[in-house]
Design a protein around this nucleic acid. Structure first.
Lengths: 230, 230
DNA sequence: CGATGCTCTCTTGCATGGTAGAAACTCTAT
DNA sequence: ATAGAGTTTCTACCATGCAAGAGAGCATCG
C-alpha cells in the first residue's frame, strides 16, 4: 500500500530547495491533503523519498506529533491524525481570541508602517473583489491577518498564532470558501472596518470587530469545507 | 566548567521515575534555575547523567528550542536561553488574553463540576490567607487558573496555555511574589470576583475581571522577581 | 608587540545497525 | 469452519560511529 510518497506536482519543484527545513517539507506533505487520516507515514519511506536518513525524519515526525498533525503509536507506526470538527471549532475560537488581541495591541501603537501596509492591503482587496479575482484575494486575506499579527509587536503572540495556523491548514480551507461570491464583498467590508478602528486607535472596537470578522469567516469555512466526520 | 549536571536535592528523587518523559526532566533542569543564561548544555553530558544515549537527549533539546527555553547554535552547542524582560511582558499579555478567554468560555457553560471545584478552591484560598500559609496559597493559585482553563472545555486553548506556562516558569515566579502580604488578600478577592461572575454566567464580566487579575499579578511579579536585564 | 594563519579539539549533525514490541498471518487442533 | 497458539514481519526506538563545521589556542611572521 501507498506506493509513491508524493504526487507529481510537488516532485517537480523539489529539486533546488534543499536547505528548506525537512520539518516544513513533511508538514506540507501531510497538510497537502493527499493522505486521508489514518494513512501510515513510514520513517523509512520518507527517508528514502527525501534522501536523508531516518534520524532527521524521526525528529520531524516527533515535532509534527506535538503540533497535533500526526499520531505516533510506539512500536507500531506513525499515522496522519484525523482532525475532528470539534477540534477545528476550538481552533477557530482560539484564532478569534488571538487575532482580536492582535488588533487591540496594534491599535494602541498609533501610526506605524504596518498600518500603511494594512491600508494598502484593504484597497487592493477591494479592487480584487471588483475584478472577482479570488486567487489574488485569498493571498491578500492571508497578508491582512499576518500584518495585524506582526503589527501587534508581540512576538510570543505571533508564535502561538503561527502554530495555530499550521494546525488549521487555514490556507487550504480559505481557498475553498473564498469561492462564495457574497462572502468576498462582506469579508472585505469587515477588513476595512477593522482597519478604520485600528487607525482611530480604538483598541476595544478593533478587537470586537476583528473577533466578529473571524467568527463570520469561521462560520463560512465550517459550512462547506469541513465535513461532519464524527 | 559545569562539573555536576544536577543539584543534590533532585538526585534523591530521580531513582524510581524512569517512565517520566526525558523531555520533562530536562525542562525541569533548565527551569530549575541552577543554570544561568548562556550555560552550555552538552548532549553528551546530559546523556551520561540521564543514562541514555545522545539521540533521545537530542530530540528533547530540539523540542526545548522550539519552546524557547534553549538555543541550539549549529555545530557550536546548546545553551540556556536568556529570557528578556520584554519577552516576559509579552507572555503575560498572552496569558491575560488566554485566561480571559477561558473565563468567558467557562461562564457560558453553566453549572459544571469545575465550577464547584473553583468555589472550593477560592474558599480554601481565603482560609490560607487567614492562616498566612503562603505555600498552600501558591499551590491553590496554580489550581485556580488550571481549573478555569480546564473548565473552558477547549483543549486547544489548554495546549497553548500549557506551552506558555512552561516558557514562563510561572510557578517559580509566583513563589517569590506571593510573599507580599498585601497582595495575597487582594489576589484572593480578585479570584472570588471572577468566580462569582462565572457563576452568574456573565461571560464578558468574567473575562474582564480575569484580565484585570492577571494584569495585577503580572505587575506584582514583574516588580521584584524579574530583574532588568536588557 | 600585534596581527594573521594554522591546527587541534570541541560541538552538533547525520547515517546505520541492532533491539524490543506489536500486529498480522499461518498452521494446527477441536 | 472456527478458535487459538506459534511464527514471521513489520514498526518505532535507541546506541553508536563517523563527518563536518565552529572556535579557541598557539605559533609564526610582519
Amino acid at each position: 500500500m501507498q506506493e509513491s510518497i508524493v504526487t507529481q506536482n510537488t516532485a517537480g519543484q523539489s529539486m533546488l530547495n534543499d536547505d528548506v527545513a525537512l520539518l516544513d517539507r513533511i508538514r506540507d506533505l501531510v497538510l497537502g491533503g493527499d493522505y486521508t487520516p489514518g494513512t501510515a507515514l513510514s520513517e523509512v519511506k520518507l527517508a528514502e523519498y527525501f534522501e536523508v536518513s531516518r534520524t532527521p525524519v524521526r525528529e520531524a515526525l516527533k515535532q509534527l506529533q506535538i503540533e497535533g498533525l500526526v499520531e505516533i503509536r510506539p512500536k507500531v507506526g506513525t499515522f496522519v491524525r484525523e482532525i475532528t470538527r470539534r477540534e477545528i471549532l476550538e481552533m477557530f475560537e482560539v484564532k478569534e481570541t488571538l487575532e482580536g488581541m492582535a488588533a487591540r495591541l496594534m491599535a494602541r501603537r498609533g501610526h506605524i508602517p504596518e498600518l500603511d501596509a494594512l491600508r494598502a492591503n484593504v484597497e487592493a482587496s477591494e479592487l480584487a473583489v471588483q475584478r472577482d479575482d479570488s486567487a489574488a484575494y485569498a493571498s491578500l486575506v492571508h497578508d491582512f491577518h499576518e500584518t495585524i499579527v506582526a503589527g501587534s509587536d508581540n512576538r510570543k503572540l505571533a508564535e502561538h498564532y503561527r502554530t495555530l495556523m499550521n494546525q488549521l491548514a487555514y490556507h487550504r480551507l480559505v481557498l475553498r470558501s473564498v469561492q462564495h461570491p457574497g462572502r468576498l464583498a462582506a469579508s472585505t467590508a469587515e477588513h476595512r472596518r477593522v482597519l478604520e478602528l485600528i487607525a482611530q486607535k480604538d483598541g476595544v472596537g478593533a478587537e470586537l470587530a476583528m473577533k466578529d470578522h473571524v467568527w463570520s469567516s469561521a462560520r463560512e469555512v465550517m459550512m462547506d469545507s469541513v465535513p461532519r466526520q464524527d
